[in-house]
Simulated assay, not measured.
Amino acid sequence: MKELKTISDVIVFCYAVFIALLLTNLLDHKTIFEIATEEQALTLYKTLGAVGAGLMLVKLLIGKLYITSLKYDRHMAQVKINELKADLYERKQEYRSNSYKESVRMEMAVASN
């Protein structure tokens, strides 16, 4: 998921740079897109705006999915930690129980001698 987020970030950045170059007239939109009339230029800019909005929407959705996957991973790690804590507690209880039984046996053996 991280790779997808990184790729979307790079694509949006490159698109933003391209649009900035077009708007500052460092790139000539008439030669790049073979535009002859102002109507075609207006249609081009509307299309570029729509594409930009679509890219930003996709970037937003990928960001939300990435955050959700991070939260899920953190939840699964917490579940694993809780399982390990429970296992450790059970082992400690078993050890204490065995130690207690051994100490009672030793006391009984000492008392019988």
Results as ranks from 00 to 15, higher is better:
Asn98Gly: 00
Gly52Met: 05
Val110Phe: 05
Arg74Ile: 10
Asp87His: 07
Lys92Asn: 13
Ser8Leu: 09
Leu65Gln: 02
Val58Phe: 11
Val58Tyr: 04
Asp9Asn: 12
Ile81Val: 05
Val110Arg: 07
Asp9Phe: 06
Gln93Ile: 07
Val104Ser: 01
Phe33Val: 03
Phe18Ala: 05
Met1Asn: 01
Asp73Ile: 03
Leu21Ala: 09
Lys30His: 14
Gln40Asn: 12
Thr68Val: 09
Glu83Arg: 10
Val51Pro: 00
Thr31Trp: 06
Ile62Tyr: 02
Glu38Lys: 13
Lys80Tyr: 08
Leu42Thr: 15
Glu90Phe: 06
Met1Arg: 03
Lys80Glu: 09
Leu4His: 02
Ala41Met: 07
Ala20Ser: 14
Leu65Ser: 03
Ile19Ser: 08
Tyr100Phe: 04
Asp9Met: 09
Val79Phe: 03
Thr6Leu: 06
Phe33Lys: 04
Phe13Trp: 06
Ile7Lys: 10
Lys85Asp: 15
Asn82Ile: 08
Gln93Thr: 05
Leu27Phe: 15
Thr31Gln: 08
Ile32Lys: 00
Met56Val: 03
Gly54Thr: 02
Ala36Asp: 07
Gly63Phe: 10
Lys2Tyr: 07
Lys80Asn: 04
Val10Asp: 05
Val10Phe: 14
Leu60Met: 06
Asn25Val: 02
Leu4Gln: 12
His29Arg: 13
Leu27Val: 15
Lys71Cys: 06
His29Gly: 05
Thr31Tyr: 05
Ile7Tyr: 01
Leu88His: 08
Ala53Phe: 14
Asn25Gln: 09
Ala20Arg: 13
Ile35Lys: 08
Val58Gly: 00
Asn113Gln: 13
Ala50Asp: 15
Glu90Cys: 01
Gln93Lys: 13
Lys92Ser: 05
Val12Met: 04
Ala20Phe: 15
Asp87Trp: 03
Leu4Asn: 04
Val110Leu: 04
Lys30Met: 11
Phe13Leu: 07
Asn98Trp: 02
Ala16Trp: 12
Leu42Gly: 07
Gln78Trp: 11
Leu22His: 09
Ile62Asn: 00
Lys71Ala: 07
Lys5Trp: 02
Met76Thr: 08
Lys59Glu: 13
Gln78Leu: 13
Lys80His: 06
Glu38Met: 07
Ala77Asn: 11
Leu23Gly: 12
Thr43Ser: 11
Gly49Phe: 14
Leu27Arg: 06
Met56Glu: 09
Asp28Leu: 04
Lys2Pro: 01
Val17Ala: 04
Arg96Ala: 10
Asp9Glu: 06
Tyr89Val: 09
Glu94Cys: 02
Met1Val: 05
Asp28Gln: 08
Glu38Val: 08
Thr31Ala: 11
Met1Leu: 10
Glu102Cys: 02
Ala41Ser: 15
Tyr15Lys: 05
Asp73Ala: 14
Gly52Ile: 04
Val17Trp: 15
Leu23Phe: 14
Leu57Met: 04
Lys59Trp: 05
Ala53Tyr: 13
Leu4Ala: 01
Ile7Asn: 01
Asn82Asp: 08
Val17Arg: 09
Leu57Arg: 03
Phe33Tyr: 14
Ala41Asp: 14
Lys46Gly: 09
Val79Lys: 10
Leu61Arg: 08
Leu22Arg: 09
Gly49Glu: 06
Lys5Ile: 01
Arg96Glu: 12
Ala36Lys: 10
Lys2Val: 11
Leu65Cys: 02
Ile7Arg: 07
Ile11Cys: 01
Ile32Glu: 01
Met106Gly: 01
Ala20Asn: 15
Gln78Asp: 11
Gly49Pro: 01
Ser69Leu: 04
Leu84Val: 04
Phe13Gln: 02
Lys101Ser: 09
Ser69Thr: 02
Val79Ile: 12
